[in-house]
Design a protein around this nucleic acid. Structure first.
Lengths: 182, 182
DNA sequence: TGTAGCATGTAAGCCGTTACATGATTGA
DNA sequence: TCAATCATGTAACGGCTTACATGCTACA
C-alpha cells in the first residue's frame, strides 16, 4: 500500500528524526509543537496543536512513529519516537517526491498592488509596519540560529536558518529600495 | 452585517478594480483566472477555476460585483464588474485589516533541513533543480514585468513585479552561497 | 494560593483542491 | 474536421483552523 502522506506529515517526521537534543526518549505532542514553532514555522508552517495530535495519530497508524506512554506521574503522557519504518519512509520521500516550487503568501505585496487605492502616507505606513515585523522575525530566527551554534549534528538546520536570515535581509533591502522609488 | 471576506476574495476584487486593459466591460471567470495566473500567482495564490466561480458568486451575494450576462452568442457568458460597493469594501479592507506577516512554504528549505539523510550529491542535485525552476519562474515574471512597462496606471503592479524579481535574484544568490558552504 | 505553562484531545466548519461533466468557438 | 482553447459549473473530499473541554504541575 502506498498511502503517501502530505508534506506536513514528513516535516513533523523530520523533526522527530533529530530527537537527540532532549534527555527524554521521544517527544510529546506539546514538545513537538514547540519545536515546530522554533523551526518549521519559518519556512513551512507550524500546525495547530490539534493538528499535531491528528498527524501523530496518522503517523502511528502507518507505524512511522511509536508511542511510549509515560505513566510515572499522575497523568499519562505520551512520547513519540520515530521508528525504523519511519526513517525509511522519510528517506524514500526525500528521494522520490516531486520538488514543488515554494509558495509565497505575501499580504504586503498584495496590498502594494492596490497601492493606487491608498494614499502615499498609507503605503509608507504599511511598509513601516512590515519592516518592524521583519525585524522582530529576524530577531526570533537569529536566536534560533545562535542556539544551533556550529554543532555538526545540526549543520543542515543551521544552513536553513541562515537561509531564512538572508531572506529577511533581502526583504529589508527590497523595501528600502522600493521606498526610494515611491 | 460585517461579513468579512478572506484575503483571497479581496485579491480577486483587486484584480477587477484594474479592469481597464480589456475593451470588453468586465471580466469572465475564465479571464479572471488568467489574470490571476499572471499576477496573483507570484505573491499570493492562483485559485482553481472552480474556486474563482465560487468566489465570484460570493462577491455577487455581497453585491461587491455585478454580473452582466452576454447573450449575443449561442451561449451565455457572464462578465463580472466591480461595483461602487465593491470599491468601497476594498478600500475599507486596505485601511482596516490586520497586516499579516508573509507565509512561506519552502519545500527546498524543508528538505535541506533533513540534508543529513541525503547524500551530498543529492543535496546538490536538489539545489540544481531549484535553480532551474527559479530561472523559469523568473523568466515568466520578467515577461509580465515587460508587459506592464512604465504606464503610470499600473505603476504599483509593476513595483510588485520588481519585488518578485528581486526576490528570485536573492534566492539565487542564497543558493549560490549555500553551495560554497557545503 | 493562584496563575502560567504543560498536556491532550474532540467537534464544527470552511477554504481550496481534484475529479467530473458539458459544450461552444476558433483556427489549422 | 479535429484539436486547442474558451467557458461554466457541481460534487466529493481533505487539510487545517478555531473553539471547546479538561486537568495536571511547578513556581512565585
Amino acid at each position: 500500500m502506498t498511502t503517501s502522506l502530505l508534506t506536513t506529515s514528513y516535516a513533523l517526521l523530520g523533526l522527530l528524526v533529530f530527537d537527540r537534543a532532549t534527555s527524554e526518549d521521544g517527544l510529546t505532542g506539546y514538545e513537538l509543537k514547540q519545536r515546530a514553532d522554533r523551526t518549521l514555522r519559518f519556512y513551512w508552517v507550524s500546525p495547530a496543536m490539534s493538528q499535531i495530535y491528528t498527524e501523530l495519530d496518522r503517523l502511528r497508524r502507518e507505524s512511522f512513529v511509536e508511542a511510549i506512554d509515560d505513566t510515572s506521574g499522575q497523568r499519562t503522557t505520551r512520547r513519540f519516537r520515530i521508528t525504523d519504518d519511519g526513517r525509511t519512509a522519510l528517506t524514500t520521500w526525500l528521494h522520490t517526491s516531486e520538488q514543488d516550487f515554494p509558495v509565497l503568501k505575501h499580504p504586503i505585496a498584495l496590498r502594494l498592488m492596490m497601492g493606487s487605492l491608498m494614499g502615499p502616507g498609507e503605503v509608507s505606513a504599511m511598509l513601516d509596519a512590515y519592516e518592524a515585523a521583519l525585524a522582530d522575525r529576524r530577531a526570533e530566527l537569529e536566536a534560533v540560529r545562535e542556539m544551533l551554534g556550529d554543532y555538526p549534528a545540526v549543520a543542515f538546520p543551521a544552513h536553513v536558518a541562515d537561509w531564512g536570515l538572508a531572506y529577511y535581509d533581502s526583504e529589508d533591502a527590497i523595501v528600502a529600495d522600493l521606498r526610494r522609488k515611491l
